[in-house]
Nucleic acid binder design. Structure first.
Lengths: 336, 336
DNA sequence: CTGAAAGCGCTTACAG
DNA sequence: CTGAAAGCGCTTACAG
């Protein structure tokens, strides 16, 4: 069945294409009876305006892009849900792109977004992203850009984040008070040293501890997960074995659980574990996992709301910081 | 910065728009030196063809829609990843839509997809979907449609599924052999009775047990999760308390864990639990959860591959059934 | 090998 | 209140 277009509606109604178009958009220029006739027939013939024609003409697409590093992660899944919900309320469509934590993919995706395919972009950066050229180019195209969670401080765009620095500090203090003295931080940022990340203004679970006390204890993970497994395992077998682990993503906490099981290390007795995580099953793990949970859904909603405010040329916040919540469970229980 | 278009490139090069267009598409009609000049300038001016103009002209969009019932579920997250990966390899874009398990939203989304915005659709249906009109209308528009996991047997479209019926049987047998005699099946399909689902050809974790032995023991969940919690809890407190639970989605298994904790019921001693699930943490739960894991990522890839084969007018399978894997863990350990 | 022209299906400034 | 016309930025059949 060939889709019906304005021209056919017009012919059928003995009206001009312009009148039909205006009637469908409920223009004040059109008489009520005409509007009625037009909308009746449109419904009857199941008319659907071609979105590409109107996007071309109106020079916007009612489509946004969502670029995230991964998806099998409850935080991002919930954030997507928040974004999709707000977008659909506003009549917008959402294109999804996964970078798989790979810088090259993020750059390729950002470049392809320069084509005018979308009216705006919501992004969460790769862990190891230090390059900002692809982001700046997006802005040069006047494409509104909103960051969430993994943001770039050097690019001037609205950011929706949690109080990571503070949370990181709280988490580290929590481990300290539970008796930990050799704390290892596990992050997904493979390539960047702490000081580089600091310079780049890259925000993540940076902590005072990490920055000032034992930067050499930070293990950077990355795309090669088997390798990460080996590296953490080696650390746990070494003289340097930590008595506390702070994971910046749940994937790494899960890895630590598996490694501890393999090495027969007891959590929390031998090693205490805390993680940034939105795992629904945190309280059901053995032992239950102490987490810092981010309000993922709300962050998604907020990022989308800010983007749409920008698209409507309204002013919007430049920075929204939502509180993350420490949920203390068994994995950091103080020794007896 | 205003984006550059073909006309400006042509003016700059003293060529016609047609020639520039052809040169960029590497047409055999254009001389090599001209192609070189054109592509050099295009790169220099950062030319990006307007996708809406070419979609309008070519009458296809290199965009597909992905419609799924929920996202905070490892199965769907991994399936999305598979689909996005294949789509990007093929140069396609992916619009994502969440129905939130609501029939009305699924219908509204399907209807909006009739506009020609996408070249094809990949869908996983709401648990309680029995209506198929919106799906048939999509097909009447000649929009290629591929189902995965939650499929409609009455709509003639390719389906990517796992051997649910067989897996359900195996799971039920497994519970039986572990000593269960009062097995409750938990599903997300709120509105449909088993026989209705059978009639509709709706495929899910239907089992021989469910169909033939104790259909009255099936608890249908739905969007109101607190209510589901209460209903399961009531069941567990009743005379009818099951000694085995088979959950068709991990969300329900997690609910059961929480309820058992609240009621101080021991898994697996008082109740054994098995679930369709792709939870990464299944083996880390307390007790570890026996699962039937679906090859989610592969199912996503397969669904996308079939859709693209259809878009390229090649023939494709009508039905791909991948094996799910029973992973026996502590939650179904036989009593001593 | 290159160009002029038509057209994809809309929207909207202009005219009446 | 309605219509004719131009144009959004491409692609492609036709002509040379």
């Amino acid at each position: 069945m060939k889709p019906v277009n304005l021209k056919e509606l017009a012919r059928e109604l003995n009206l001009s294409v312009s009148t039909v178009s205006r009637a469908l958009r409920d223009s004040w220029e059109i008489s009520t009876p005409t509007k009625q006739r037009v909308s009746d027939l449109a419904r009857k013939m199941n008319f659907q305006p071609n979105p590409y024609a109107s996007s071309l003409r109106k020079r916007h697409s009612r489509t946004i892009a969502l670029v995230i590093p991964e998806i099998a992660n409850n935080f991002f899944a919930l954030a997507i849900k928040g974004i999709e919900t707000v977008a659909r309320e506003k009549g917008y469509h959402v294109l999804i792109y996964l970078t798989n934590e790979e810088v090259e993919e993020e750059i390729a995706i950002a470049n392809s977004l320069q084509s005018g395919r979308v009216d705006g972009v919501i992004m969460s950066l790769c862990g190891s992203m230090q390059d900002t050229e692809h982001l700046l180019e997006l802005q040069q195209r006047n494409l509104p850009l909103v960051f969430f969670d993994r943001v770039s401080e050097t690019v001037a765009a609205p950011k929706v984040i949690t109080n990571d620095y503070e949370s990181g500090f709280i988490a580290t203090e929590h481990l300290f008070h539970a008796g930990c003295r050799r704390i290892a931080h596990l992050t997904m940022s493979m390539d960047l040293s702490i000081s580089q990340r600091r310079q780049q203004g890259y925000t993540d679970a940076l902590t005072r501890y990490e920055l000032s006390i034992h930067p050499e204890r930070v293990i950077h993970s990355g795309r090669d997960e088997s390798n990460t497994y080996q590296r953490i395992k080696a650390l746990f077998l070494s003289e340097e074995r930590p008595d506390g682990v702070f994971a910046s993503v749940e994937k790494l906490a899960v890895l630590v659980y598996h490694i501890c099981r393999e090495l027969q290390l007891k959590i929390p007795d031998d090693i205490k574990v805390i993680s940034f995580s939105n795992l629904l099953t945190a309280s059901l793990l053995n032992p239950s996992l102490t987490t810092i949970a981010q309000p993922a859904y709300e962050m998604g909603r907020e990022a989308a709301a800010i983007l749409f405010r920008r698209l409507e040329k309204k002013t919007s916040e430049d920075r929204v910081m939502l509180p993350a919540a420490l949920e203390v469970r068994q994995s950091t229980r103080a020794g007896s």
